[in-house]
């Protein structure tokens, strides 16, 4: 899979928040095989809390995808993106412009505006969006080369609430990398997303809040791999009625 010209092997992207400890975070990332991890920017303390975290991330050797989580306006998101580029020395930005406090659903109008501003300024934007096709088209026109539709509200673990919408995105944007971002709760959700033809899955809470985050990281990696392999193998069509798999011809008359 290529994203903004970079060849990516692992189709599982992992967030770094809410883990029980830095050690568990590191173990989970290693076990997941993820090459891309998401991070945020928050207020630093004079004792350098953020610097310690940054040192740990660098040791993991993953590509950093900073986010604009918590931003509710174009200005906030654009300013945060610039700060992220200055700090992480990467043009990548996971663009979140939140439109609703309860659902954390994106404000897609502000999202498109912010994406255009950032793309024009040399950023490579990963937009957290809905499964709306028109919004997807606008984001591509704005300069995005990847789309990240939600599966369900952030942190809800509900799984894919609208598989048909994701299927439509796959059909409508056959050559655009699609990464399901948010809502994955269980490995089967990740598999389902990949079976629908998504190129990758980005998740955080499902691993961080599992009883065994490291074990769940491994399970998610396997689930993503299985789903992708299933999609590539072209699954059979669903049938409304039963069809015997064992040949009827040659059945003995025993009654």
């Amino acid at each position: 899979m290529k994203i903004y010209g970079h060849e990516i092997t692992s189709r599982l992207l992992l967030g770094t928040a809410q883990y029980p400890s830095p050690a568990v975070l590191g173990a989970a990332i290693r076990e997941s095989g993820s090459e891309i991890i998401t991070v945020s920017l928050r207020r630093e303390t004079a004792d350098g809390t953020g610097a310690g975290f940054w040192d740990q991330l660098r040791d993991l050797g993953c590509r950093i995808l900073p986010n604009t989580a918590g931003c509710h306006s174009v200005q906030e998101a654009v300013t945060t993106a610039h700060m992220a580029r200055d700090l992480f020395d990467t043009p990548w930005i996971k663009l979140e412009v939140i439109g609703h406090c309860d659902t954390l659903q994106p404000d897609v109008f502000a999202l498109v505006e912010a994406a255009r501003t950032l793309a024009d300024d040399g950023f490579q934007v990963f937009p957290y969006t809905t499964d709306d096709l028109v919004v997807g088209e606008k984001l591509l026109e704005a300069g995005c080369e990847v789309l990240m539709p939600w599966g369900a509200p952030i942190g809800s673990g509900q799984g894919l609430r609208n598989p048909d919408g994701l299927r439509a995105m796959r059909a409508h944007f056959p050559d655009v990398p699609l990464i399901v971002d948010a809502g994955i709760g269980r490995p089967s959700d990740a598999t389902q997303a990949m079976e629908l033809g998504m190129d990758a899955v980005l998740l955080n809470t499902a691993v961080a809040k599992a009883g065994d985050p490291t074990g769940m990281a491994k399970a998610m990696a396997l689930a993503v791999e299985a789903g992708r392999a299933g999609f590539a193998a072209d699954p059979m069509e669903r049938r409304d009625m039963a069809v015997p798999s064992t040949p009827v011809l040659g059945l003995a008359a025993l009654s």
């Binding site: 928040a17 975070l25 991070v39 945020s40 928050r42 989580a69």
Partner: peptide
Amino acid sequence: EVLAPMQGG
């Protein structure tokens, strides 16, 4: 505002 790398999803 002085921001630093922090955990994020």
